[in-house]
């Protein structure tokens, strides 16, 4: 079972690296959107540093959302998803592998780019480790929840806007706890409670969302 999981991850990573140019897109999107905030609001240092925890996380939600589509879209169109269900291994494990691979492609670069962009928004240095931790725990949750939405809309044309409508309300707890932890760290308050809640959310999502994704994919294929 573990080897099946690893095979799926390796296969998805391989497919992603064959189209290397697309790997950069969510990162560039992230950088550009964050850049818009000083231009649109104010370049004032104090103001931006107050805004920073929210901005870096709201933008991370959007970047996760737009990169989410690619997790099943192509596999759904060429029939690979059906093969997952025909396999001798439980589909939840294989789906978990796909989500992990997708997170490695889209979530892992965020670990570097989010703290970097936060520095551009004058976030205080002491909050950077906290931000790093919240991105590390938070982005897998985004991938796990987002995959449910993608699985439900996989059979639809132009599901992109619909996906946002379905998934963004479900992302709200991640946003609250993650930006809350960073805000607390900026003010020098204890933030472990927020991080613990994020961790609990990750565990819950890891357990439940593969089941929901597999049920949703079955619905979309019918």
């Amino acid at each position: 079972m573990l080897s099946a999981l690893l095979t799926i991850i390796r296969r998805d990573l391989l497919v992603a690296f064959r189209r290397r140019a697309e790997l950069m897109n969510p990162i560039l999107f992230y950088v550009i959107v964050v850049t818009l905030f000083p231009l649109g609001v104010s370049p004032d240092q104090e103001f931006l540093s107050q805004l920073a925890p929210g901005v870096v996380w709201v933008t991370a939600l959007l970047a996760a959302l737009i990169s989410m589509e690619s997790i099943f879209r192509q596999d759904f169109d060429d029939g690979s998803v059906e093969q997952l269900f025909l396999s001798q291994h439980p589909p939840t494990i294989l789906i978990l592998g796909k989500v992990i691979a997708h997170w490695l492609i889209t979530g892992l670069p965020m670990l570097v780019i989010v703290p970097l962009m936060a520095l551009l928004l004058y976030i205080p240095q002491q909050a950077i480790p906290t931000l790093f931790i919240t991105v590390l725990i938070g982005t897998p949750i985004l991938s796990l929840i987002g995959a449910i939405g993608v699985a439900l809309t996989a059979g639809l044309r132009g599901g992109g806007v619909l996906l946002g409508l379905l998934v963004l309300p479900l992302y709200i707890p991640v946003l609250i706890f993650a930006s809350g932890a960073v805000s607390a760290a900026i003010e020098g308050l204890p933030y472990s409670g927020h991080v613990a809640m994020l961790g609990a959310g990750l565990i819950l999502a890891l357990i439940l969302s593969p089941l929901a994704i597999s049920a949703s994919l079955k619905i979309s294929m019918s």
């Binding site: 449910i148 439900l152 379905l166 309300p169 707890p173 609250i176 929901a212 979309s220």
Partner: peptide, 24 residues
């Protein structure tokens, strides 16, 4: 199919409602 997808989403939502409520 639409009703099944809506059912799935409402079940996911019901797990999330208490989480959203308390987080807010």
């Amino acid at each position: 199919v639409a009703a099944k997808a809506a059912s799935m989403l409402s079940i996911v939502g019901v797990i999330n409602i208490p989480i959203i409520h308390y987080s807010v």
